[in-house]
Design a protein around this nucleic acid. Structure first.
Length: 644
RNA sequence: GCCGGAGUAGCUCAGGGGUAGAGCGCAUCCUUGGUAAGGAUGAGGUCACGAGUUCAAUUCUCGUCUUCGGCUCCA
């Protein structure tokens, strides 16, 4: 008898060993059709693998990540099989499932390169092979056998992988005439894969290292139903419409110019308006939290960065230094603001009673990014951080950290960023030489972050080894329209700079002590934040942020004068208003201004002019009726206040 | 930086070895219209840049730049 325990703790007994698929079938035929993989005692297995002992079992369908993973992993094998048939002698690197779909890194024989047009042929072959319903069979083999097998195939990539595996843990999967080294799990047969789309080709370094040779990476995605592929492609189209580069151009928020240089955004008037609004918003919050604004120059003596240690670590990969013509002094474009702020801290003696000192600056920094990495506003070479540095006593660290989390909460809440990941990055304890500072301080700092998050009820993931070299940090990651995740807010603890800059304060004991620094930027960079904001809102910004809040639409040119009167009135309340006085019919003006995403449209004609009223339309919501100019202004101001 | 696409009007794109095309936008005129596209006329291009092949290149070849999708990197 085999006892199978299900996730709901129910237990069923079966007379003899059986597979996951058979378990599913014993429950219902429809489940048996949908199930893709099975977790047996916490390990993911093939459905066709026999369970011969009592076990707890969870069946995975397409709705579980585990189900998709098996599906896409098998799809990667299917693609490899197709490629091997079309290009015999191809060597295969790794071919995992990813968040959406899968890829395989391959090395085509004779240095052949794949082009986009070759994908169709591979797709076609995949469909053909899938339709054969070839069973995917797991075989456990010894290391010697594995080496033998892939030596025959002359695939040194796989051999390299096998050499790192332990004997007795090696498995291969076979389908048709194709065999691949693989841990699994896989679908029972290739026929599950109904819809196939190979999406792109990219170069990828073998094992992710620039020092290795570059392989060809083919990306694809597959689905169990043709319809799902259609939906996926539609979703991609929709996402493209939200792309901040497209909307940024349409709404005249920002632009780039070849003449200025790549990765150097130019903020157009409307974009600048939006950005300044965000800055004002944050300034107000920071004032509440007792921050002080400072301003520092865009360049700094190279010695400053030698003191901070950044020159040594990043100087070679940075923009080169600028030299003064007569004296030959060397300056760097500032890649961060902290060294400047440290010097401000040092501008006078500090007492323990003065701490924490919280210094904020919208500091524009310049960093060399590899040309291939630049991307709209999310990855640029010149950007403005909403930077601040908190200099505090060690006993204040946790509290200060919590207050920064509060600020980030306020911002994310105001902008409805509720789908974020908070990631705590700790040091890699195996490699302590990578970090500076004492073990004691690291322990304290890591402890403080973990406790602060805990006490704030923040759900976090912990990533050991991801800390900065000078201290642990907490990052907030938010996704863009295409699901790519970007780091926005960051809070970092730093014991290094206070040490290097000899920062100190006089303690209650009349001795000199070293403060701790917190680097923090809730937006991260204004550029990246605005990019993500655009993609989240599809350019339909909340009223308080909209570059133009109200547009007046006179019914005909006869009422332009009245429109101007309304505009003057709204101006008194700082409501950002424009007039569409083009010689067009009202229907046309409404359409065009709806598409411009201006939150309120005010239609004014004879009736309104006679009664000092406006006819209100809300973008996306249509007619809202007539109200007096004053009522409208009050409504708008209330809405703005409510949103902040 | 690396691999693979792309670059034609302000935007979206068609075209193709021999005067360069559309829609939208823009300008002028007609129209003065009440809740998602009124009409007419017109201006706009060194077809990214530089070489090469050719009688002739925007079109073919090579290089450069920019841009897009990835890789690597990210103080």
């Amino acid at each position: 008898m085999i006892k199978i325990t299900f996730p709901d703790k129910s237990v069923r007994e079966f007379p003899e060993p059986l597979t996951g698929l058979e378990i599913a079938r014993s429950i219902s035929n429809s489940l048996a059709k949908e199930v893709l993989a099975v977790t047996v005692d916490g390990k993911i297995w093939d459905l066709t693998r026999t369970i011969s002992h009592d076990a707890s079992v969870k069946l995975h369908t397409w709705d579980d990540p585990e189900g998709k993973e098996a599906f896409w992993h098998s799809s990667a094998h299917l693609m490899a099989e197709a490629i091997e048939q079309i290009y015999p002698g191809t060597k295969f690197g790794i071919g995992p499932s990813i968040e959406t779909g899968f890829y395989y890194d391959i090395d085509l024989p004779g240095g052949r390169q794949l082009a986009e047009k070759d994908l169709q042929q591979i797709e076609k072959k995949m469909v053909e092979l899938a339709r054969q319903n070839n069973a995917i069979v797991r075989r456990e083999i010894s290391k010697a056998e594995a080496l033998e097998l892939f030596t025959q195939k002359n695939d040194e990539l796989k051999l390299e992988l096998i050499n790192e595996l332990e004997d007795g843990t090696i498995s291969v999967y076979e389908q048709g005439n194709f065999t691949d080294l693989c841990r699994g799990p896989h679908l029972p047969h290739t026929g599950y894969i109904k819809a196939i789309k190979l999406t792109s080709i990219a170069g990828a370094y073998w094992r992710g290292s620039e020092n290795n040779r570059m392989l060809t990476r083919v990306y694809g995605v597959t689905f169990p139903k043709q319809k799902m592929l259609g939906e996926y492609l539609t979703m991609l189209e929709e996402a493209k419409k939200r792309d901040h580069r497209k909307i940024g151009r349409e709404m005249e928020l920002f632009t780039f110019s070849e003449a200025v240089g790549q990765g150097l955004p130019l903020w157009l008037p409307k974009g600048a308006q939006l950005r300044m609004q965000l800055e004002e918003f944050l300034k107000k919050i920071q004032k509440r939290y007792n921050y002080e604004q400072v301003i520092t120059p865009h360049i700094g003596d190279v010695k400053l960065y030698k003191i901070s240690g950044h020159y040594e670590k990043y100087g070679k990969d940075s923009f080169h230094t600028i030299t003064t013509p007569a004296e030959g002094e060397e300056y760097m474009l500032k890649p961060m603001n902290c060294p400047h702020h440290c010097e401000i801290y040092k501008s006078k003696p500090r007492s323990y009673k003065d701490l924490p000192v919280r210094m904020a600056e919208f500091g524009t920094v310049y960093r060399y990014e590899q040309s291939g990495e630049l991307h709209g506003l999310t990855r640029v070479r010149g950007f403005t951080q909403d930077d601040a540095h908190i200099f505090c006593r060690p006993d204040q660290l946790k509290d200060e950290f919590k207050k920064v989390i509060d600020i980030i909460f306020i911002i994310f809440k105001a902008l409805h960023f509720d789908d974020y990941i908070a990631q705590i990055s700790l040091r890699d304890k195996e490699n302590s030489e990578k970090y500076i500072g004492t073990v004691e301080n690291w322990n304290k700092a890591e402890q403080a972050i973990i406790e602060a998050c805990d006490e704030k009820g923040l759900k976090t993931t912990i990533e050991p080894g991801e800390a900065a070299f000078y201290g642990p940090k907490l990052d907030f990651m938010v996704r863009d329209a295409l699901g790519r995740s970007w780091q926005l807010g960051t809070i970092q603890v730093d014991y290094n700079l206070p040490e290097r800059f000899n920062l100190e304060y006089i303690g209650a004991d009349d001795n000199r002590h070293q403060p701790v620094m917190i680097h923090r930027a809730p937006f991260g960079s204004l550029e990246r934040f605005v990019a993500v904001l655009i993609e989240h809102t599809a350019g339909k910004f909340p009223l308080w942020l909209a570059p133009e809040q109200v547009v007046l639409l006179p019914i005909s040119e006869k009422y332009n004068e009245y429109a101007q009167k309304v505009l003057n009135f709204l101006n008194i309340y700082d409501i950002r208003t424009i007039i569409d006085d083009r010689n067009e019919k009202i229907g046309r003006k409404i359409r065009d201004n709806e598409l411009k995403r201006i939150p309120y449209m005010l239609i004014v004609g004879e009736q309104e002019a006679e009664s000092d009223t406006v006819s209100v339309r809300r973008q996306g919501h249509g007619d809202k009726g007539v109200m007096t100019i004053k009522e409208f202004a009050e409504m708008i101001l209330a809405e703005i206040k409510d949103q902040q």
